[in-house]
Write a protein that binds this DNA or RNA. Structure first.
Length: 661
DNA sequence: GAGCACTGC
């Protein structure tokens, strides 16, 4: 494979530094001046510039926050906690005093906290109780280029809050102290932020970086897994030291390449370094995941095969070579009438900024190399950034959240306007669920649903569970469903034992009650044993221990909120299944499907013909009617999280809600 | 017979 040599500057961070030596320190005086002068500042800083740790301290030290708290939002929880720890150390204070953090389930703050790292989702939740965010003097939106749904909601709200707290014009609230907003982005495409905030000129800060030499292929590589295999062995047989990180779109490609590399590595001649191959993706067993962080033994080479997880979420030390297939998986919601939309999960080309971010992963500790398995022209014609989340996800939950903040999604000034069909679809779902009335006003039920931090279809089920006397069971099920990661773990080289142990929890009615069985069994182990015992019990039963312990926390949180908003959480249907299923049907009405003569199921409220995902406990069975949690198109249209119901149950619920849409 | 990555009073 021939490659054209190009050079590019990309980011680098070291673990130990003096604050004054960071690249951003050179521009400190200028930055402080700009911050003092302007209500909104846009700051573009490359990786390793030190902006995230230093800007809050500059603001504090220069007294710009007017004695009030400075919030710095982060899209990820780990980032919020580790950055807070770093800044506390630099300030010479203990974490949770003047420097703290706030993430779901874990808050380390005091009334005297002046610098608070907070997940963007938590700050959105804080809006619900304080709609001017009046506790804060400065709000810093970090990693704004990632354009998460919650970042976009915050930016839109902040624009309005700025008018209320600062403006001389209409809507200014005299009782409010002024607010400053800092938008920080790691990529050069700050134009969008600039346009959004009255054409403010961004401040640029260079990063601290090592050179990364970038190579492109001359032609496009349709079989990128095979191209990655060849490129890896070219690097490997050169015998230059340094670990390799290969970016692939998904688990399937990773496992294929894993076995190919292992196969060929065994046939290498004597004298070539041994290779240690590690897959890395989010649903991998935690014990397998942690292997990528182990030090590479002297005289061997580590090769990590990763999804996008290694692009932003985790940093693996020692990487000198990147092989970038230029592909990722993208989840996208395709809205359809009556809220019967489909999620698609398909492989697509990455963006230019993503390609640059991936290359940068080779330059963190020294000079690096990045081999792109696509031509330079392909790079040039890539989209500059991926489409923001607000343009490609189901907006139902967000519309409900905004309604409870008295905000109207159709009137809010967003950086990118949400898709009209997605808004319509979300509004339809909310009216079917009874969260809004004919005039699209929040109902009493809708207020309660908004208070519960779960998908509206699940908060609907929780509300119903009080009437049907099974709030204990339904809250338990919803807690597990609300955990992002999967409950049942697979292992590499799938062996039939996994299915065997899963059968232990299997309930004939489907996945929801199966989940309940597993969760109840786990809770019993936890209450009668130590944390370590629970973890090993999970491992023996191929259950995701992290998912279950998170479900316990979500359960505690949901029960707390239910009590506060007046939902009795102690009702149990003691072993009966029907009430539980009925609650689920009320939340999942739009997700009902009837069987067809050919064995496939057809949506009742939409046109799709669907198949039960093979991971479901009822995958191989046939029943007249089902309800499901998710509809995802990958290679086929699959439904996941399935319970068996009767056609009568579906039509009863239909007639009780007809007229709402 | 198959699962990109995050997040929430």
């Amino acid at each position: 494979m021939s490659k054209k040599r190009l050079s590019s500057q990309v980011g680098h961070t070291t673990d130990s530094y003096h604050r004054d030596e960071l690249p951003i320190a050179q521009g400190k005086a200028k930055i402080i001046r700009e911050l003092q002068r302007n209500p909104v500042t846009i700051l573009v800083g490359e990786t390793g510039s030190g902006k995230t740790t230093q800007i809050p301290q500059y603001i504090l030290e220069a007294g710009i926050s007017g004695g009030k708290c400075i919030a710095i939002t982060q899209p990820r929880r780990v980032a919020a906690t580790s950055l807070a720890a770093r800044v506390a150390m630099e300030q010479g204070v203990s974490l949770g005093t003047s420097v703290g953090y706030s993430i779901r389930f874990d808050e380390h703050c005091s009334p005297n906290t002046k610098i608070k790292f907070i997940t963007d989702g938590m700050l959105v939740r804080e809006l619900m109780s304080d709609k001017y965010l009046s506790n804060y003097g400065v709000i810093i939106i970090d990693e704004a280029h990632e354009r998460t749904l919650r970042t976009d909601v915050l930016l839109a709200s902040l624009k309005q809050i700025l008018r209320r707290r600062n403006g001389s014009s209409q809507g200014h609230d005299q009782s409010q102290d002024p607010l400053k907003v800092v938008v920080m982005s790691a990529t050069l495409d700050a134009q969008g932020f600039s346009n959004f905030f009255d054409s403010i000129k961004p401040i640029y800060v260079k990063g601290r970086q090592h050179d990364v030499h970038i190579f492109h292929t001359l032609t496009s590589q349709p079989d990128f897994v095979e191209a990655a295999l060849r490129t890896f062995f070219q690097i490997h047989t050169s015998n230059n030291p340094g670990d390799v990180l290969i970016f692939l779109p998904g688990q399937e490609e990773i496992e294929n390449l894993n076995s190919s590399i292992r196969f060929y590595a065994r046939q290498l001649p004597q004298g070539v370094m041994p290779v240690l191959v590690y897959p890395m993706y989010s649903s991998l067993h935690p014990s397998q995941q942690s292997k990528v962080f182990m030090r590479t033994p002297h005289g061997s080479r580590k090769c990590i095969l990763a999804t996008n997880i290694a692009e932003t979420s985790i940093t693996i030390p020692g990487i000198k070579y990147i092989i970038d297939t230029g592909k990722c998986k993208e989840r996208r919601y395709v809205a359809r009438e009556a809220g019967s939309g489909v999620d698609t999960l398909l492989t697509r080309d990455i963006s230019r900024s993503s390609a640059m971010q991936r290359a940068g992963r080779a330059g963190r500790e020294g000079e690096g190399f990045c081999f792109r398995l696509f031509p330079k022209q392909a790079f040039d014609s890539m989209a500059p950034t991926l489409e923001p989340e607000i343009r490609r996800c189901d907006l139902t939950a967000m519309i409900l959240e905004l309604k409870s903040l008295d905000l109207d999604i159709e009137r809010l000034d967003f950086m990118d306007k949400p898709d009209e069909d997605a808004v319509y679809s979300g509004l339809t779902t909310l009216s079917i669920l009874g969260a809004i009335d004919k005039h699209q006003n929040l109902t009493g039920a809708g207020k309660k649903m908004a208070a519960l931090p779960v998908d509206p279809k699940f908060s609907r089920a929780i509300l119903a569970s009080e009437e049907l006397g099974c709030s204990q069971e339904v809250i338990d099920i919803v807690s597990v469903l609300s955990v992002s990661s999967r409950l049942f773990l697979g292992v590499q080289n799938d062996d039939s034992n996994v299915v065997g142990t899963r059968d232990k929890f299997k309930h004939p009615s489907g996945d929801h009650c199966t989940i309940l069985n597993a969760f109840r069994a786990y809770q019993e182990v936890v209450s009668s044993g130590t944390y370590g015992e629970a973890t090993s019990w999970c491992a023996r039963n191929f259950l995701n221990a992290r998912a279950l312990s998170e479900a316990v926390e979500i359960r505690r949180q949901l029960r707390g909120i239910c009590k506060r908003i007046g939902i009795n959480t102690d009702l149990s249907c003691s072993g009966q299944v029907q009430p539980i299923i009925h609650c689920l049907v009320l939340g999942l009405v739009q997700n009902a499907a009837f069987i067809q003569p050919n064995g496939f199921y057809k949506q009742v409220m939409g046109p799709s013909v669907v198949k039960i995902h093979p991971g479901s406990v009822v995958a191989q069975t046939h029943h007249p009617a089902i309800v499901y949690d998710e509809l995802v198109f990958t290679t086929q249209t699959y439904v996941r999280g399935v319970s068996i119901v009767t056609k009568a149950e579906i039509s009863n619920v239909f007639s009780s809600i007809s007229g709402r849409f």
